[in-house]
Nucleic acid binder design. Structure first.
Length: 445
RNA sequence: GGAGGGGUGGCAGAGUGGUCGAAUGCGUCGGUCUCGAAAACCGAUAUACCAGCAAUGGUAUCGAGGGUUCGAAUCCCUCCCCCUCCGCCA
């Protein structure tokens, strides 16, 4: 327990190194913070780190004295022993005081460090907000309709694919029941993605849908934010949260572990439900299943050595492209700019599908996202590896990457809106037909 | 949920108050031997933080936290986790 009454991960380990990095790259860290448009007090980090070191030195020296007394005790005469006991008692009090101060200093430092974002890939576009995002590629052709395309909400109603009213009745706004072919589509998408990824050597897992606060924090979420800004649901009377993505559980899976270098890279594909409060998104995308509190997602995650993370990031992006090319959905690839990167991400690509029913006459909508988080998450979760060739002290941190294989709701929107026909039916993507069991979704009578 | 057993280094496993950061075995790395390999033999092999250019030194860690003690892997308390058996259950 810490002075704030909250349990944190072992303070003796990982994030402390961050301070050394900040110290050594002061200008770069400050520039990065500016590029990302966040506020973080770098100087406070240095100040708190100095304070922590000072206290640690003091505490260590006092403990060393105590140990000397213990050593002297054996050969001491009874009179000397009485004296040593007294002296040790005094030192004990000092140590207790210093340790308390040290813990507090570590906590303060941790807080200051926690708001410093990851460094940024040199090729990531620089810009505020999402204004400087760069479209790096576009795939497929937008469908040319000779009729006015419907949006997915209308299609769901006409084809009886979802029940939003029942969702609201049972669980509230932004919950939904999938029905009929939408259910089969979701299951088919899972199968399709899983099959593809297993073939590529990813280890399939089904993860818990809940995770501990400390794991969320390690991944870079802020479950302790106020209810107004918190992105995840917390479970009352517990230290658990509903996960917002399997990235959380997949990353946490190897927390506090040391990989052998030969075991890396490790690639996982995880299936989970995802729960999001959508705090701060009030009023946006209120229709249909675009922005909902619960959805199903197949997520990729990789642990690797630092020299491989750039390549694996590209690999994951290509898999995402491959998945949506296979579904026949037109999409574009965005290289996310500094102002739009999350704290943990070093670089991030988003895939945006063309959604003919979105906005006025169609618009792009995010369907996947892949981030290279370098060692940001690994530091917080204590994920290291043992290098084949020992080079000096310390075990290096692994790099972590994540990427959406399929977020079912968004994929379903893209499938329905792009596959719709003049007669109101929807063509099922060929790759999904074996699981859906039909070529076309038509209205029920 | 009930009863019992247990959590020690990469793994296995000893250790019940100081001589223990910790025997031994396996694994790994280096060496000897060999044309090469295996075997055998010799040696090395936890992590983090602090000080130092470094050599090195200091501190902490035997599931977590607290306590007793000059001194705790070892004794006491609380919590967590794992295993076995029983009960319950999709």
């Amino acid at each position: 327990m810490y002075p704030d009454g909250v349990r944190h991960r072992d303070p003796g380990t990982p994030p402390m190194l961050d301070a050394a990095f900040v110290r050594d790259h002061l200008d770069a860290v400050k520039a990065n913070i500016a590029n990302r448009g966040v506020t973080a007090d770098v100087d406070a980090v240095l100040r708190l780190d100095d304070e922590r070191k000072r206290l640690q030195r003091q505490a260590d020296e006092t403990k060393a004295k105590q140990n000397q007394i213990t050593d002297a005790f054996k050969k001491a005469t009874p009179e000397e022993r009485a004296k040593l006991k007294e002296e040790s008692g005094k030192l004990k009090e000092q140590v207790a005081g210093l340790d308390a101060l040290l813990k507090e200093a570590e906590l303060e430092l941790r807080k200051a460090l926690s708001v410093i974002p990851n460094m940024t890939h040199p090729k990531a576009p620089v810009g505020a907000g999402d204004t400087a995002n760069v479209t790096v590629a576009e795939f497929g052709t937008k469908p040319a309709f000779d009729f006015k395309p419907k949006d997915h909400v209308e299609l769901c109603q006409l084809l009886d694919l979802a029940d939003f009213e029942a969702g609201t009745k049972v669980a509230g706004q932004k919950f939904y029941f999938l029905k009929n072919e939408a259910v089969l589509l979701e299951l088919a998408l899972i199968q399709y993605a899983m099959t593809k990824l297993v073939a590529k050597g990813f280890t399939p897992v089904i993860t818990p849908d809940l995770a501990k606060v400390e794991i969320l924090e390690g991944i870079g979420f802020q479950p302790r934010d106020t209810a107004e800004t918190r992105q995840v649901y917390t479970v009352a009377d517990s230290d658990l949260c509903l996960i917002a993505t399997a990235e959380i559980t997949l990353g946490g899976m190897h927390a506090d572990q040391v990989f052998a270098e030969d075991d890396l890279p490790k690639r996982y594909v995880g299936l989970s439900h995802c729960f999001r409060t959508e705090a701060g998104a009030a009023g946006r995308d209120t229709r249909g299943i675009y922005r909902v509190h619960q959805f199903t997602k197949v997520e990729m995650f990789a642990f690797c050595t630092p020299e491989h993370s750039d390549a694996i990031h590209e690999e994951i992006r290509e898999i995402e492209q491959d998945i949506f090319l296979g579904l026949g959905i037109p999409f574009r690839v965005i290289d996310t700019c500094t102002g739009d990167l999350g704290g943990p991400a070093y670089r991030k690509y988003d895939l945006e599908a063309w959604m003919p029913g979105r906005g006025n006459g169609g618009d792009w909508g995010e369907i996947t996202s892949t981030s290279n988080c370098t060692d940001y998450q690994a530091r917080r979760l204590g994920i290291r590896y043992r290098p084949k060739e020992k080079k000096g002290g310390g075990l290096p941190f692994a790099h972590t990457l994540n990427g959406t294989a399929v977020a079912c709701t968004r994929a379903i929107i893209a499938i329905l809106e792009n596959g719709q026909q003049a007669d109101g039916s929807v063509l099922v993507p060929e790759v999904l037909r074996p699981w859906v069991g039909k070529d076309r979704i038509t209205a029920k009578r």
